[in-house]
Design a protein around this nucleic acid. Structure first.
Lengths: 232, 232
DNA sequence: CGCCAATGGCTCGCAGACATACCTTTGGAG
DNA sequence: CTCCAAAGGTATGTCTGCGAGCCATTGGCG
C-alpha cells in the first residue's frame, strides 16, 4: 500500500508542543532577518492572535528568547519586545538531519520560486523591494550576511504572490541555515554569491523565467557543494 | 520589516487541534489512495506512535471516520480498521481558499519533483513502482481516477528520495483535490491525462530531467486551466 | 500637569490531550 | 481443543495550554 508515502502521511502531526513551536517561529523571524536588530516584534496580544496560541504561551516563548539574549522587553505604551543589536551565536547544531532531504527540497522550492516570480508582472513596490534587498545583501558585512541573504531569498518567494510558497521557503531556509552555520563564510564566496544574486534579481525583473531558474540553480548548487564538502 | 514575509512566519502554529489534524491525516491517506479500499490502516497503537498523538485521540479520529462511512473496525487478532470499498462523496467544499496560492505551490513542487526524480539513478524497485502506478492509473475507471492519479504523482515525489518533498507534495495535492472534486471528470480529459502521464514517467525512467519537468508542467497546466475555467 | 491608551506582567479555573493500565474479542498455532 | 498474541474498547488521574480578567508601567496628547 505504498509503503514510502506512508512515511510522509503518518509523520508526527505536531513538531513539538505549542511552546516549542512558538519559540521556533519567533527565532525564525529573527534569524532570517524578517525582524531586524533594533526592531520591535508585534505585541504579545497580536502575536497570540496571529500564531493562534494563547498569550501565556507567547510570553513563555518570549521569556525563553530573553534568557538567551535574543530580545529585550520594555513595558508601557510604546514599549514592546525588541530584537537585540548583538545576537548570540547559534547553539552548536544538533544533528545534520538528512542533508539530501534538506537540499533537495530547498532547490525545488527556490528554483521554482525564482522562475514563477520572473513569470509574473510585478508591481512597482515589489520591484523596489527586490532591488532594495539586493543592495542590502551586496553591501552587507560578513556577520550580517546570512540574515541579509535570507531576506533576499524570502523576497523572491514573496514575489510569487503565494503565501504557502513563501512559508515553505522560509521553513526550508531555516533548516538549511542550521547546516550553513557550521561552515565558514569567506570573502570570495561572498563576492561570488553577490554576483549570482545580481543575475537572479535582474532576470526576475526582466521577466526571464528560464534564466532566473538557471541562475538560482547555480547559486544553490554552490552552497550545496560547499556543504557536502564540509560536512562530509 | 518585510511585512509580507511576516504573514508566512506569523501564520498559526497549529492548523487545528490534535483531533482535527489526526482526522485530516487519515482522510488524506484514504483520499490519496495510499491506503486503498479493502486495505487495513496501521493499528491504533502504531498510528498513535507514528502520528505522535495519544491513542485516545487516534480512536476519536477513527470514530469520526466510521461515522462518515470511510472505514469499519473489527476486533480481535487479525482485526483492525479497514477502508470501505464504497467511499462517501466528499462533503461540499467550504472555501476555494486562494486558487493562485494552491496552484503555484503545486506546480513548483511537482515540476521540481519530476525533474529531480529524472536526475537520480533509480533502483529496480522504484522503477517497477513507477511503472505499476502508471499502469494502475491508465486502466482506472472514472470513479477511481483521482485516487490512482494521486498515487502516481506521489510515487514521482517518492522517487526524489526526499521525505520532506514527498510530504509537501501530499499536502499540496490534498488541497488541490479539494478543488478538483468540484469540477466534472470527463473521458477525453482522462485519455489526455494518461498520455501525459506516460510521457512524464518515460522521461523519468530515461533520466531526462528537462523533458520530465516540461511534461509535468504541461500536465499540471491542463488541470489548472480547467480549474480556473470552472471556478471562475 | 494630568489623563489614558497601549504595552508587558500576573493569576486562576476549565477543557483538551496524554500516559497508563486493564478489559474484551478474535482466530491461528500448537 | 486450548492457548495466547494482537487487535479494538474502556477508564482514570495528570498536565499542558487556553481564556479571561486584572494589575503595573510608560510616554504622548490635550
Amino acid at each position: 500500500m505504498m509503503e514510502h508515502a506512508q512515511e510522509a502521511l503518518f509523520r508526527p502531526v505536531r513538531a513539538g508542543n505549542a511552546f516549542e513551536e512558538t519559540v521556533e517561529r519567533l527565532m525564525q523571524s529573527i534569524r532570517l532577518g524578517v525582524v531586524a536588530p533594533g526592531e520591535r516584534l508585534p505585541s504579545e496580544r497580536e502575536l497570540a492572535t496571529r500564531l493562534g496560541v494563547s498569550r501565556v504561551t507567547v510570553r513563555e516563548a518570549i521569556r525563553s528568547l530573553q534568557e538567551n539574549h535574543y530580545v529585550e522587553s520594555r513595558r508601557g505604551r510604546y514599549g514592546g519586545t525588541f530584537v537585540n543589536e548583538v545576537l548570540p551565536k547559534s547553539a552548536p547544531g544538533k544533528e545534520f538531519g538528512d542533508l539530501h532531504d534538506v537540499l533537495t527540497l530547498r532547490k525545488v522550492l527556490e528554483t521554482g520560486a525564482a522562475e514563477t516570480a520572473a513569470g509574473r508582472s510585478l508591481g512597482p513596490a515589489e520591484r523596489r523591494g527586490l532591488r532594495a534587498r539586493l543592495e542590502e545583501a551586496s553591501t552587507s558585512s560578513l556577520v550580517e550576511y546570512r540574515r541579509k541573504d535570507s531576506r533576499l531569498h524570502l523576497a523572491v518567494a514573496e514575489a510569487t504572490g503565494s503565501a504557502a510558497l513563501t512559508a515553505a521557503v522560509a521553513e526550508s531556509r531555516m533548516r538549511a541555515n542550521e547546516l550553513l552555520d557550521h561552515i565558514p563564510l569567506l570573502e570570495p564566496n561572498l563576492a561570488h554569491s553577490n554576483a549570482q544574486h545580481e543575475r537572479i534579481i535582474t532576470s526576475i525583473l526582466d521577466g526571464d523565467p528560464a534564466t532566473a531558474r538557471q541562475a538560482m540553480a547555480e547559486h544553490l548548487d554552490g552552497t550545496a557543494s560547499l556543504l557536502r564538502g564540509f560536512l562530509v
